[in-house]
């Protein structure tokens, strides 16, 4: 229990630093072509333990989002996307539930549920997160095509990094 808490806290800090120190500068194309932003901090939300109560999950995601927002200078934008992602997480888990059900003491990661399962799980949530994020960022559906373009391009790149993270660290708790 304690080790889980510490692991989560460390992951939190690590992902925030990774996001704001590395990936914040990372924009593909540059200039006016600002369609790719890499999001790695959603990994924190992805990897929270399965038994995390829904309210706590959402609150932690908010905390994560607002922390990233502090560095991005965009109060509320990342937070709202994080909150949205956390809110749909139980639904996504229910859709992807394996035949034997989940072991509630685990975290939903590659190590326990396999890379295929994790890729689908991460893809669904990350897409929801990014779409919500770019919608809030644009704050109007006038540029819906633009929102979709940004979502798709960022989704592809972010997904790559999320999977790389899984292979590099292979988180167990």
């Amino acid at each position: 229990m304690n080790s889980t808490l510490i692991a989560q806290a460390l992951r939190f800090v690590f992902l925030v630093l990774l996001q704001v120190l590395v990936f914040k500068r990372f924009t593909l194309g540059g200039g006016n072509f600002n369609y790719v932003s890499v999001m790695v901090y959603p990994i924190f939300i992805l990897l929270l333990p399965l038994r995390t109560p829904s309210a706590l999950l959402i609150a932690l995601s908010f905390l994560m989002g607002i922390t990233v927002d502090l560095f991005y200078d965009s109060p509320g934008v990342h937070a709202s996307a994080g909150v949205f992602m956390a809110w749909i997480r139980p639904g996504v888990l229910a859709i992807l539930e394996p035949r034997g059900g989940y072991n509630l003491n685990q975290i939903p990661a590659k190590r326990y549920l396999g890379i295929n399962w994790f890729a689908r799980y991460a893809a669904l949530l990350l897409f929801g997160h990014l779409f919500f994020y770019f919608s809030v960022e644009a704050f109007t559906f006038v540029y819906i095509v633009d929102i979709f373009l940004r979502t798709l391009s960022s989704f592809v790149v972010s997904m790559v990094f999320v999977l790389i993270y899984q292979f590099l660290f292979d988180p167990g708790e």
């Binding site: 109560p53 829904s54 309210a55 959402i58 908010f62 965009s74 509320g76 809110w87």
Partner: peptide, 29 residues
């Protein structure tokens, strides 16, 4: 309903933050 309540509450808070502290979104709002 904790999840839903937290979700709605925090999204409202986010919306408030977004609108109040972001110039572009504030203008659109």
């Amino acid at each position: 309903f904790g999840g839903l309540l937290t979700f709605v509450g925090l999204e409202l808070l986010c919306l408030y933050l977004v609108v109040n502290f972001n110039r572009k979104q504030n203008q659109i709002f």
